[in-house]
Design a protein around this nucleic acid. Structure first.
Length: 703
DNA sequence: GAGCACTGC
């Protein structure tokens, strides 16, 4: 094995770690930090007093790095070296080096807040700034204070971010470890292209004609553009041939491609053939393609962001950060010197690009993270003042508090309730945890378990929703897919339930999935999630909760009333009311929004063409319009208590904190120029109630 | 009649 750069720094690293509770390691790609840091510390007896835990943002990384380290140490995976990811714990009593996803470490700290089995915790790839890593960074800062001499924390990061992380940890030392990348020549465009699709095409063809062999990796923003560019490239290359240049294959690469299409990038091309891989940012970190010598970087990425003031998500094309641009360029220098063509001027890179990607914590709903932190019961920490590396906005924090209050996870003073504690034990969004608990009360837990498990895999499940397989496969398909259940008109959650139930009745048959154009892997995942949730519910129960895994309904005609009622409780912050005269909706909550049911929904309109008066929705996503995705019909009497609760809510009380540090907290919150939230109960609510009654009576008399 | 980048418990 060739000497990894990091090994030359072994003494320096050990010396620094011995003297400092926290150390930041700047390790470029190929430095060997992921596999070597743990082994270096192991050699210096840091595994005598506890386990070395290394977190990774992705499951595959945790598994593959653990496998490598076990191999290098000549031990069996699961013995001295192991890993833990969701559904899979390959560790034993003997395990001293443990690779795990940051999500798993967070779960562990729920039952053991001091994490005292660990002597060292290494947060790897911290520069990616995943939501979980950011929460962990805050927890580590507190933990090193509590366990002054018994815990060592190492954080690996990127060049542009190191100083900031160091400052966060009270100016802890920063060590630079060079990488083993070959030089990559950066070539900038003179100006920004008017059409980056055309520009990509031109550059790619240029490389093909002028440059020696080596694959080309092109970064685009999304599936649509990728498909267009792939088609154009293929056309152009076909028109070029005549032996003027070598053969070429063009491969698309993005998340909604079926796995068998994704792995095509791992088969090396035939000789004298150049590959063009047109990819989303999946090839930036998640997948490493060998053989790439040229990178074309459009400078953009598609990013999902949450707007707390409206509760809506939007998916926007935004400029990448310098860290991302460098990461992309680095993909060209893995096997030999490469070139990176940036389709923007150097001035744009220098002046417009942010140093680091906006961390996820500033782009997501914080409901889950805040509930998690509240459930830790940290006596010395007030959640609203929790020390984040990049604190989220107070607006976002307040939004999370309101949402949690509406689903009974915290009380009006902001303290966690017993319901909230139970919810935090479930690896789900709070709305779904709450649904499960309520469903248990109504005796429809089994159905609810299925629905929430299906929702957690939903994007990789249904045909049409992920159009990956549809377009090309459409023509080739021999028989039309069998019909899926339609939710009986009640909406998408019910459809998801019915789909799983049918699969269950067909003995979890793989061919059944294929016949219905459902992704087998996705359905298997659902089964796993459901099983895991079942087990957790059983554990939580201890007699107090009623877990009945397989209750069967006697009546053949079902209105799923209990289940829909449970969903209404869980989605209390995500209710919408239909307009009187048309099928548009208005969200009920802090800030009313005009929205529509997503066209992919199976929720049905009545004989007069009207959709249900009230629905709950899983999320609001802004594309061409604001849409509610995954809706379920609910009934007015279930909504009324939510409206009452909304009227009572007071944000300054909710922010009051846990009581331990109440006064100080209150002062801080009151200082901020904000008023109690602006609750908008629809002004025509009363008349709507009347109208609904009339419609109900009218329908009854028809029958 | 619209369209979802990527992760994770």
């Amino acid at each position: 094995m060739a000497e990894l750069p990091i090994l030359q720094f072994e003494e320096k690293i050990i010396d620094t770690v011995q003297k400092n509770p926290v150390t930041v390691i700047i390790g470029e790609t190929g430095s060997g930090k992921s596999t070597q840091l743990s082994q270096i510390l192991h050699r210096h007896r840091y595994t005598k007093s506890g386990i070395i835990g290394v977190t990774q943002p992705r499951r595959v990384a945790a598994v593959s790095v653990a496998r490598r380290v076990a191999q290098e140490l000549g031990v069996r995976l699961g013995d001295e070296v192991g890993y833990a990811i969701r559904f899979e714990d390959r560790t034993s009593e003997r395990t001293r080096i443990k690779y795990l996803t940051d999500g798993v470490l967070l779960r562990e700290s729920l039952s053991n807040p001091e994490l005292d089995q660990y002597s060292v915790i290494i947060l790897d790839e911290a520069h990616e700034r995943s939501l979980n890593t950011d929460v962990l960074l805050g927890l580590m800062k507190r933990l090193v204070k509590l366990r002054t001499s018994s815990l060592r924390v190492l954080i690996t990061s990127a060049t542009l971010d190191g100083e900031k992380v160091s400052k966060f940890f009270l100016d802890c030392p920063v060590l630079n470890v060079p990488g083993k990348l070959y030089p990559v020549e950066i070539l900038y465009s003179k100006e920004r292209p008017t059409s980056y699709l055309e520009s990509c095409l031109r550059v790619a063809i240029d490389i093909h004609i002028r440059e020696p062999e080596g694959d080309v990796l092109i970064f685009m923003t999304g599936q649509d553009d990728i498909e267009k560019l792939v088609a154009k490239l293929e056309d152009k290359i076909r028109s070029l041939e005549e032996g003027s240049c070598m053969d070429a294959i063009v491969l698309p690469l993005h998340g909604s491609l079926p796995p068998e299409m994704q792995v095509r990038v791992f088969t090396p091309p035939p000789s004298n053939c150049r590959r063009f891989i047109v990819s989303t940012n999946i090839a930036e970190t998640s997948l490493t393609v060998d053989g790439v010598v040229y990178v074309v970087d459009c400078g953009y990425v598609k990013q999902r962001q949450y707007v707390p003031s409206t509760g809506m998500y939007s998916l926007d094309v935004v400029q990448i950060s310098k860290v991302q641009a460098n990461q992309r360029a680095g993909r060209a220098g893995r096997t030999r010197p490469g070139k990176c063509y940036r389709l923007y001027p150097s001035r744009v890179y220098e002046e417009e690009f942010l140093d680091v990607t906006v961390p996820e914590i500033q782009r997501s709903s914080l409901t889950g993270s805040i509930l998690y932190l509240k459930s830790l019961d940290l006596p010395d920490i007030d959640i609203l003042k929790f020390d984040f590396l990049d604190p989220p906005s107070s607006e976002s924090l307040e939004d999370a508090l309101k949402q949690l209050y509406l689903i009974d996870a915290i009380d009006e003073n902001g303290s966690i309730t017993s319901i909230g504690r139970t919810m935090a034990d479930l690896p789900l969004e709070p709305s779904l945890s709450r649904t499960l608990m309520e469903a248990n009360e109504y005796g429809c837990l089994s159905q609810a378990l299925t629905v929430v498990a299906m929702l957690s895999a939903e994007t990789t499940l249904l045909p049409g929703r992920s159009k990956g397989a549809s377009k090309g496969a459409e023509k080739k398909r021999k028989h039309t897919p069998l019909e899926l259940p339609d939710g009986s008109g009640w909406g998408d959650h019910i459809q998801l339930l019915q789909i799983f139930e049918q699969w269950d009745q067909n003995g979890y048959d793989v061919d059944w999935c294929k016949d219905h154009e459902l992704q087998v892997r996705g359905m298997m995942f659902v089964k796993d999630v459901r099983k895991q949730l079942c087990q957790i519910m059983q554990k939580i129960a201890k007699g107090s909760l009623d877990v009945r895994p397989k209750e069967r309904r006697k009546e053949s005609r079902q209105d799923y009333k209990d289940l829909r009622k449970a969903l209404c409780v869980g989605y209390a912050g995500q209710v919408a009311e239909r307009m009187i005269r048309h099928n548009g909706y208005r969200t009920i909550g802090f800030k009313s929004q005009l929205v529509q049911v997503h066209p992919s929904s199976v929720v049905r309109s009545d004989e007069e063409g009207m959709l249900p008066n009230y629905v709950v929705y899983h999320e609001l996503i802004v594309t061409s319009h604001p849409y509610m995705r995954n809706v379920c019909a609910v009934e007015m009497p279930w909504v009324t208590p939510i409206l009452k609760k909304l009227e009572k809510i007071s944000v300054s009380k909710l922010s009051g904190g846990s009581g331990h540090v109440g006064e100080e907290t209150n002062r801080k919150i009151v200082d901020l120029p904000k008023k109690d939230m602006n609750v908008q109960v629809p002004d025509d609510h009363e008349s709507r109630i009347q109208a609904a009654k009339e419609r109900f009576l009218a329908r009854k008399s028809k029958k």
